[in-house]
Design a binder for these strands. Structure first.
Length: 606
DNA sequence: GCTTTGTGCCAC
DNA sequence: AAACGTGGCACAAAGC
């Protein structure tokens, strides 16, 4: 059974039961539902979650709402967890683009209000908690905003009918989405994709709610060790100041030389005859000049200070937790993006500050060579799947005789998936293509489709955007009567670049789908694992005694768990990986091995 | 003064 | 090795 959450005027909510599963024409509401005050919703949800599964319905309901971040954060703050959901905004975005549903009424309809929904911040609506700089929400449902309440045309009439004021109707939208899925070329795949995307939204909200355990004192010690004590506002830390002096001395530069100014520093280096064309690390490393060592160290420490220094701590860590905004589906390929604190670029060097609470552990799990394994499975490449069976896929490729060294196997596969055209990776590509023709053909075909201006799709049906104006312009420019050689070259360059994008899209996007399924399964299994008998920990409810996801990084998760449950959690992440593989690829015999480490500090994993 | 662009580095 | 895919972010310089 689904339960649709319909915003009403004046902060009330209509809760409508919709029987499932959906028919081809979509579900019809069982009744007009009932209207509850906004602050009663957590209680209503809790009742249906805990009571619904044991009485009338065999499972907890599926909550259908416009945006998970509008409803779920407040539920979590009330300690209420939901089992499953359907996020209409995220689902529509997928269905609008998907080549698998291109014939549906939903796909061909002109843009409507649902298309205009911008994502909401993970801290929810009307909350002051959470990130310091949440993205500005621009939504059509401004329930908590006084301005909109006063704009409400009429008081709700006992909950009958769609939302007031011409607001989009989630019941109707759900029906349209059901219809689009049912009439698509692959209903099963799309259904799984939408479920996984929505489960991802739940995970993201829960991870924001729980946060990543962060020891401010450890972080401060890291900074002080490498930079010196925290300086007053506007001053360089002692260590950076000393290095700046060394840089000036090595260049014979005046004390006014500011190493933070690229033009000035480059000029000074030119006078000193260093011979650098840029300040890039890899370029400096090739040079033999006394300024290079202090400059490299300066850049290193400067990066630490500006990206993850004391200011970062002040902004993003509070109450012993680092909280970022995960943006589900924020990357075109379906990967998550993040906003705030650079969460997806957490440098290795500061992971020492990620420490489990007392009596708790971190279970860190990492999918080994996820993308080439996904490629093997998508392409039904039995040979490549076999190469990955023993554990290390790249070693397996060497053992197959295709290439001589593990390093060659690795750069060759990465090049095949990224579209590399030079160096060792391009050199071994023909040998990989001979040994694994199906896998290599899949990425080559994806590249050609992109070069033609076509659309490609992931395993579950997320489609790439059409190339759009830039592609058209490039082609038009190249074929114009007066097209010069450079116009043709520009067009070729852009076309190939788009081919590299679509080549990578199918692999990266399907890997993102695997990761979504993995996390959805981990989430469910962790909850089924139940709670620890010990005292409540520092984690907020509903996770105070329960293992929960705390961090996600494309192919890696961190679970924060009561120590006695750590071993069981390790088994959970492995079982979930196997389940994700089955969900995406059925019986195709591809393994998704994990590296699992149970540690106190994130830095101690792998 | 403010916004945009360029540079460079971090993650997968 | 880099360039070869996807991003975020901070800072200085350039542009308005």
């Amino acid at each position: 059974m689904s339960v649709v959450v319909v915003p009403q005027a004046a902060g009330t909510v209509r809760v409508v039961r919709v029987p499932g599963p959906a028919s081809v024409v979509g579900p019809a509401p069982a009744d007009d539902g009932r209207v509850v005050a906004g602050d009663e919703l957590p209680g209503v949800v809790r009742d249906l979650e805990t009571g619904g599964a044991t009485t009338a319905a065999p499972r907890a309901p599926r909550w259908v709402w416009d945006d998970t971040n509008r409803w779920y954060p407040a539920l979590l703050r009330a300690g209420v967890r939901v089992e499953r959901a359907h996020d209409l905004r995220l689902a529509l975005r997928i269905l609008r683009q998907s080549a698998l549903a291109s014939g549906s009424a939903l796909s061909t309809a002109p843009p409507g209000p649902w298309d205009g929904l911008a994502p909401l911040p993970a801290s929810g609506v009307g909350s002051t908690a959470g990130a310091r700089r949440p993205p500005q929400a621009d939504s059509l449902f401004e329930l908590s905003e006084p301005a909109v309440v006063s704009r409400a045309v009429a008081p709700p009439e006992d909950g009958a009918g769609p939302p007031p004021g011409g607001a989009p109707d989630p019941v109707a939208e759900l029906a349209a989405q059901h219809d689009a899925v049912a009439s698509s070329a692959e209903p099963g795949r799309l259904r799984l994709l939408l479920a996984a995307e929505s489960a991802g939204a739940l995970v993201a909200a829960e991870m924001h709610h729980a946060g990543l355990p962060w020891r401010t004192d450890v972080h401060d010690a890291i900074l002080t060790e490498s930079l010196g004590p925290r300086p007053p506002q506007g001053q360089r830390p002692a260590r950076l100041e000393a290095l700046a002096a060394q840089i000036r001395a090595a260049l014979d530069a005046p004390p006014t030389l500011n190493p933070d100014s690229h033009p000035d520093l480059l000029k000074a280096m030119q006078y000193a005859g260093v011979g650098a064309r840029s300040l890039r690390k890899w370029e400096l490393e090739k040079l033999d000049h006394p300024v290079v060592p202090p400059l490299l160290e300066y850049k290193n420490l400067y990066r630490l200070l500006t990206a993850n220094g004391w200011h970062w701590l002040d902004d993003w860590v509070s109450g012993g937790r680092f909280r970022t905004e995960y943006v589900v589906g924020g990357v075109v390929t379906g990967r998550w993006a993040s906003s705030g604190g650079g969460a997806l670029q957490l440098p290795k060097g500061v992971r020492r500050a990620v420490v489990a609470d007392p009596g708790w552990r971190l279970v860190v799990a990492d999918a080994a060579q996820l993308e080439p394994r996904v490629l093997a499975a998508m392409a039904h490449d039995e040979e490549m799947a076999r190469a990955g069976r023993a554990g290390d896929l790249y070693a397996g490729i060497v053992a197959s005789g295709a290439v001589e060294t593990r390093e060659l196997a690795k750069v060759g596969m990465l090049g095949a998936m990224y579209g590399g055209t030079t160096g060792a990776s391009a050199q071994v590509l023909p040998r990989l293509a001979r040994a694994f023709p199906r896998a290599i053909a899949l990425v080559e075909e994806a590249a050609r489709a992109g070069e033609r201006g076509g659309v490609v799709s992931t395993r579950l049906g997320r489609s790439s955007p059409p190339p759009g104006g830039e592609w058209d312009a490039a082609q038009a420019g190249a074929f114009a009567d007066d097209a010069g050689a450079d116009a043709a070259a520009r067009a070729r360059s852009f076309t190939r670049s788009w081919g590299r994008f679509t080549r990578n899209f199918v692999v990266q996007g399907t890997a993102a789908e695997w990761a979504l399924c993995w996390m959805a399964s981990i989430r469910r299994r962790l909850w089924e694992l139940g709670s620890d008998d010990g005292p409540a920990g520092l984690a907020p409810e509903p996770f105070a005694r329960r293992p929960h996801l705390a961090f996600f990084l494309h192919d890696e998760v961190v679970v924060h768990a009561p120590a006695p449950l750590a071993d069981a959690v390790g088994q959970v992440v492995r079982d979930a990986a196997a389940e994700a593989g089955r969900l995406l690829f059925g019986d195709f015999p591809v393994d998704f091995p994990l590296t699992v480490a149970t540690v106190d500090s994130y830095a101690d994993a792998k």
